[in-house]
Design a protein around this nucleic acid. Structure first.
Lengths: 123, 123
DNA sequence: CAGAATCCTTTACGATACTG
DNA sequence: CAGTATCGTAAAGGATTCTG
């Protein structure tokens, strides 16, 4: 069970990749690589994510043990989110993935244009 | 702009991680690591994915240039899907992620149980 | 400032049946 | 066997407003 990295049958893979199977999960993990961050910082850093969606995403990540929440007493409220050990472990491949997409971003765009052209031409 | 791997602002990250932002995207990429595969093989290998959803996922992956489709003439139909160069490039971090989740799967489960307990206790 | 509440829209997912 | 069509459900995303 610890040595079948070569091949994983059935839907254990789905359980694993569910950790990323949302629009913002990986983005937020990525944004947290800078260290403990407040929600406002995250929203600014990410761009285009609404407060509600960020809250929901952080909740999911906490639920799965990737992220920790720490609240400080006082007013105005101060809250910080941090990657847990597990989150840091998973950050590495996430970051590697992101870097590669950035490196090969033009391949993706080219593929999309080709696909769109192929949709319009024969249709 | 090719050297800011240390920090990516705004929502380019979202564009990147959209490639994984679905339930089955990463799972199918993962399942294709074995080499060219027919849809039936993929369904069997993955488990729990319906034909329609597999088709849709493969379509998305093709659209983004991660996967290639090759159809062979004849009857019954024979179709094979393969990871493109880009797909192979991205497979590595995907696989690394999967492996790590399998290694630390118990952390995830423990976090979920803790989270569920925390929901029920105070509520 | 954090985040809960509300309302709406979109879309992925799932089961099933059907066609070439 | 590959893929489409149809139907229904569930959930995520988005915009906005409000409260401690």
């Amino acid at each position: 069970m610890a040595a079948d990295h070569g091949f994983i049958a059935d839907c254990r893979a789905r359980l694993a990749f569910d950790l990323l199977a949302n629009t913002w999960n990986a983005v937020v993990v990525w944004a947290l690589r800078a260290g403990p961050s407040r929600p406002g910082e995250l929203r600014e850093r990410i761009g285009g994510i609404s407060p509600k969606v960020l809250t929901g995403t952080l909740r999911r990540l906490r639920f799965n043990g990737l992220v920790e929440r720490r609240a400080y007493a006082g007013s105005p409220p101060r809250v910080e989110y941090t990657l847990t050990g597990l989150g840091l472990t998973l950050l590495e491949p996430v970051e590697a993935f992101g870097v590669r997409v950035f490196e090969h971003g033009e391949d993706v765009m080219a593929a999309r244009e080709r696909a769109e052209a192929a949709e319009h031409a024969p249709g």
